[in-house]
Design a protein around this nucleic acid. Sequence first.
DNA 1: ATTGAAAATGAAATTCGATTTCATTTGGCT
DNA 2: AGCCAAATGAAATCGAATTTCATTTTCAAT
Lengths: 156, 156
Amino acid sequence: MREFLKTKGFKMTPQRELIFRSFFELDRHVSVDELYDKVRQQDNTIGYSTVWRNLKLICKVGLAEEVNLGDGVTRYDRVTQGPHGHLYCLQCKELVEFDVEPVLEFLTVAADEHKFAPDGIKIEIQGHCAKCRKANKKKARPVDQPAAKRLAEKRP
Amino acid sequence: MREFLKTKGFKMTPQRELIFRSFFELDRHVSVDELYDKVRQQDNTIGYSTVWRNLKLICKVGLAEEVNLGDGVTRYDRVTQGPHGHLYCLQCKELVEFDVEPVLEFLTVAADEHKFAPDGIKIEIQGHCAKCRKANKKKARPVDQPAAKRLAEKRP
DNA sequence: ATTGAAAATGAAATTCGATTTCATTTGGCT
DNA sequence: AGCCAAATGAAATCGAATTTCATTTTCAAT
Ligand SMILES: [Mn+2]
Ligand SMILES: [Mn+2]
Ligand SMILES: [Zn+2]
Ligand SMILES: [Zn+2]
């Protein structure tokens, strides 16, 4: 890593070392705040801006990319294999990935038809994960009598 | 429109009238600022927050939805027919739509496999539109000798 | 037509994540 | 050891989104 950065003209520091290591250890899709918290557990003198800058750096050297899910916080997604889609639970914010290989061809053609030169694609499905739905059902049942009644009445 | 809103419990006002009308006349994917500017041409007393609130209202009643392209500004996309994808030019910010009907089935299955209940999908291709690429090529050619040279040297 | 409660408006203030500034320290080099 | 560009941390700034609040307006019931 030190060598890799050196070739790109960046220096290694204890803070950077810790931030990089923590980022790659952690699950993907971390926000600045999340990584900041994690890093702080090891060294509570590290500044927020240093974490932010190093996440940007990780992106700049191509090891991660920013992900925006429209909830106001930028997440950093480690670049691994190929492109993938995201299943984003609106309730618990869990983010799981899924393979999109089968639709790549179609999208490429679509871009082509519009004479568009694609740089990247983004495929997201927002909804509710199994866990949250189960939890909701349990909670809703006992109190949702009115709804149940309404439903029943509508069925002739 | 007045009636439609009334049934949902909202009142009609001159400002709302103008804002709604302008939004539907305007091209899709407008930001608050853009709509604010347009509306201001008719009535320069309307406040920014009123425009913002009414765009939110248009979404709430299901006539539009927010679009986030990760460039920091929220746009409002009129809901028309079915779901569609976006080709987003990183340079001129142009946004063109394309049909995604053929991939819907695949995505539904993908969500299903993860026991995800989808509420919405988002498909974006970011890149450069034909116009921008053409413009770039014209500008780049005369000065990009170094790059061309570099390329030539790398080819053995 | 009058009236009163609820909703809407406009200006200003606030929020909050992202980004920049700046004084100081540090890493990697000769 | 000594230089200098890069890196750091704290604080300041930015900007879009959202809220607050005093005032006005809508509209349904009188
Ligand atoms: Mn991912
Ligand atoms: Mn659209
Ligand atoms: Zn969930
Ligand atoms: Zn363009």
